[in-house]
Amino acid sequence: MEVKIAGVSLYYIINWFFIYSFLGWVWESCYVSAKAKKIINRGFINGPLCTIYGFGAISVYLILKDFDENILILYFGGVIVATVLEYITGWLMEAIFHTRWWDYSKKPFNLQGYICLGSSIAWGAFTVLLFYVFQPFVEWITGLYPVSVGKVGISIVSVLYAVDFGSSAVTAFNLSKAFGKVEDMLEDLSGYLHTTKLYETKEEVREKLDELRVINASELAERIAEKKAEFSSQLEKKQLQLPETYEGMRAELEKRMDEFKEKYITIRKETNPVRKRMIQAYPGLKTEFRHHLERKSGKRHEKRISK
């Protein structure tokens, strides 16, 4: 008995999923490579597939296929459906891996950094293209080979995809742990800096140290040097208030900054090829470990107040 979803054979849905995932990988890899001016294999898994594009395209198509003759409904429906999918995907990946894979926080009209207005507008345009250009194209491709051949092909690809996805998930968990170590070091460093009274609040200290949360080790060295100069300048301004402890505080500050850099570089050296590819694929990748701690500490604070 043939399995169907929303009136479409599961066989074709799986075929289209892999084709759209591949097309999404081509688009993402070319776009990111052009921006970085070097070849980058984009995507969560190592193979040439971007799962979010495959899943998103199939979901949008199945939900909106009955409105394929109304371009306005397709556009605004695409804006809504694709935006909701992007938000849920971003939230789930952060909840599972404690790592944020993209961040629209600096873009206008964003929601928690997961989605933004500009991206949503683009999803609407992509949805129209999906129905009038891409869907006819992928249907043409799946019509080029017999169903018997297609079933064998998607079985092989599905097994390879599952293995790749599993290994990538393990790598992502390990990457989250590595980023967690960096966050712990930043927390220790911010705790010390807060005791020096260089800044009014601990939040202000963390804001300064957030600039050290970078992927590239050479860039870290440059930022460490910049922060040393900035913190030393702040200390000099307070030198008249604490003449007896100024030199000791400055030496301790530089020592802690150097220790942070050495530990960070050590963690980076432990990066295997798969993890390195993942970091290169998502240059804006960052851990949300600190935010989880803040939420927990906030809840503990609320409990104390309620008591």
Rank of each mutant, 00 (worst) to 15 (best):
N15I: 06
L23C: 13
L23E: 03
G24I: 04
K35I: 14
K37E: 11
G47R: 05
G54L: 05
I58N: 04
I63A: 00
F67H: 01
L72P: 01
L74N: 00
G78S: 02
T83Q: 00
L85W: 06
E86C: 05
H98T: 13
N110D: 11
L117H: 05
A122W: 00
G124C: 01
F126M: 04
T127E: 00
L130N: 00
F131D: 01
P136E: 02
V138C: 08
G150Q: 06
V152T: 15
V159Q: 09
G166C: 13
G166Y: 12
S167E: 15
A169Q: 03
V170R: 07
V170G: 03
L189H: 01
Y199N: 08
D210L: 09
R213Q: 05
R213G: 03
I215C: 06
S218M: 09
I224G: 03
I224T: 05
F231A: 12
Q234P: 03
T245V: 14
Y246C: 11
E252R: 09
M257K: 08
F260V: 15
Y264W: 15
T266N: 09
R268W: 15
R268I: 15
K269S: 15
T271H: 04
R275S: 14
R295N: 08
H301C: 04
E302P: 01
K307G: 15
